[in-house]
Amino acid sequence: MTWISKSITVVGGVLLAHACYSAQEHSALQSFKATASTLTSSPPTAASLPIDIAIETIIALLVVIFGLVLGTRPMRPIQWHVWAGKLEREGEEGFLDSEGEVNRDYVGNPFRSLETRPGFIDIRKQRKEFAAWVKNGGGQVSQ
């Protein structure tokens, strides 16, 4: 969440709280008036909220929604070629969650196993290749 969306959400929340407080005060005043009117036996007034409080509530709600929507993470691509391009172009970095960890459901190119064929691995060849890599000083480069 960026600070813009956060501050908009806070402003909306304050407006909403203010509207609630106004409504509460208004009803308290109404009930006080009603008890006063029974004493003077004048006709009771309609106990509906004034229009400005209703408008304030609706605006506060819209502002809060706007702030929250502004703060959502960008959507995942839904078109195949855009998604695949993102996988190839950004690698793991394009699929981080809010904690900066790679998403659990990130698998890279899901069709890569058709080329690497884990069911048919030649373990002896892999071991030989790894030994050769170590012998050529590959271990030092990675450290």
């Binding site: 080329e115 884990p118 691995i121 890599w133 990675s142």
Partner: peptide, 14 residues
């Protein structure tokens, strides 16, 4: 969590 067959030697070592 992913099959390691396509990893480079250094990540396999890791």
């Amino acid at each position: 969590l992913h099959p390691p067959s396509q990893l480079s030697p250094s990540s396999a070592l890791q």
